[in-house]
Amino acid sequence: MIEAVLPQASLLKKIIEAIKELVSEANFDFSETGIRLQAMDKSHIALSFLHLRNDGFSEYRCDRSQTLGINLESFSKVLKCAANDDQVQIKATDKAESLSISFESTAKDRVSEFNVKLMDIDIDSVDVPDMDYQATVNMSSQEFARIVRDMMTIGEAITIDATKQGVKFSTSGDAGEGNILLRHRKTIDEEDGPSSTSVEINEPVSHSLALKFLANFAKAAPLADRVSINLIEDAPVMFEFKISDMGHIRFYLAPQIEE
């Protein structure tokens, strides 16, 4: 038996919106400690990770570990039937064939219930080792989304250069080229404002990435004020969005390399 309650449906809506463009179907692994998901896009270029801890839910029960295969488009459609501040409960019995999702209004005078069919999904999973990143950029997620949008008007690939001075995003295309530099601030405090950027660096590092994937990652911006971009030479770049007090979404993106 699985039962999980979130006080606001908007959070679950944002989580599903953040990953459904990248993966159409995914296995949700429920255990005593919470919910985990690992999924790759069809081209195996981007890897999405979701972790939601049990203590982030207002109620959480998982009698034994269970994997639920869910079509994310269907999940998203059902979640659109919830008001943002509805309480949402998800429930599945052992060996269930569907996931029960119910919404209760804040006044508790309206309760709706939907069932989404579960499916067997055969997916490739990978082991991601702990890595010592050479550079970590911490910046506003809104700023990240804006840069991705701006760069996409020019090119298809983006180069991220992290140095002690800051982080530079650049692109080029048929129409021309462009770059945006965010200068490093030593401390992110109120004076600097929430839009400031910090770069923790051991060694300068540069990566070229396909912009269309970053546009998908930027869909997680409504979940978190900040995004961290973790870079290491010859390894996928990791983008992390923290989900308030309950977990995170991480995206790993395989780089483009010079032949």
Partner: peptide
Amino acid sequence: ARTQTSIFSFFSTP
């Protein structure tokens, strides 16, 4: 020219 790598080039399957 740049070539797109895959996640499998870096992370192995369990």
